[in-house]
Amino acid sequence: MKKTVKLDKDTKYTKIQELTYELKVSNVMTNKVVTVTPGKTIYELRELFRTNRISGTPVVDKGKLIGIISIEDFIKCLAQGEMHTLISEKMTKRVKTLYADEPIIHAVRKFDQYGIGRFPVIEREGGKLVGIITKGDIIKGLLKKLEIEYHQEEIHRYRASHIFEDIIADSTSLILKYNIVGKDFNKAGECASGLKKTFYRLGIQPDIVRRAAIATYEAEMNIVVFTEGGRLTVSVEPQQIKIEADDSGPGIPDIKQAMQPGFSTASEWVRELGFGAGMGLPNIKNCTDKINIESKVGKGTHLETIIYLNNNA
């Protein structure tokens, strides 16, 4: 009875989804529209379709869209020998249109709904014909936008992830420092959030970014909850990431006990805020390759963790 939800390449999928909301019809439509006047004959249409390599065109009378005529209409007339009938008699009069400022997701839905090949695009104010859109235009527009975004991202990534290769030194490390304000529950998590973004920017693998972000968040939370504030120092080196958290808080009397899952000295208000269930240090331990805690009661705590970057990047 249970169905498994399968998704492939979901990040790209959502990227395209996002773009279908972001891009407007006017961004992807063809601006130069070939139009005909209703007084022309079907015969004259042939030349128009041929020279412009199109298969349908809006019918415009004094700047106003009054219909649409396609190659199918042309073929019907050809079959019935009605080549000299006026376009106004054979065109589709109730034209389905799109507004230039609609997101292209609306266009996609309309193509699905009506099963027709093209929509004239009009201005919301005044209804002036400003373009025409086909499914092909939408695909082209999306691909172009994706290409631009990927290209920009690549440049960013390249610059950041090769920082270590470009630097000539016996040893290199990038040091990030964050100050943590104690007891300010609303600000808690800002360091981890900033670190996560920075790590992505540096081109570090998602799995490692995630582990580092979780460890940092828990360390940050400990400092916020138990102390008056502290410092977070993150050193990114070619082979490893070192995260250090320092505070001058109350200290941990029994480190071994504190590492036990479920052990907590947090007060009830902390528990009601969603932390303090004795999972912080065990979480940090699970996310990192090495952990070391030094603590003196009444003096403060020094937490040091290392995550190895066993990659070639």
Partner: peptide, 28 residues
């Protein structure tokens, strides 16, 4: 902390907490 420890990306988080840490955790 439980969400940080066990949640997989693209999960739906159901919670009775409404403070800003819920969003931070989701982000992480």
């Amino acid at each position: 902390s439980d969400v940080l420890a066990y949640a997989k990306p693209d999960a739906l988080l159901l919670t009775g907490l409404t403070n800003s840490q819920v969003i931070r955790t989701a982000e992480i």
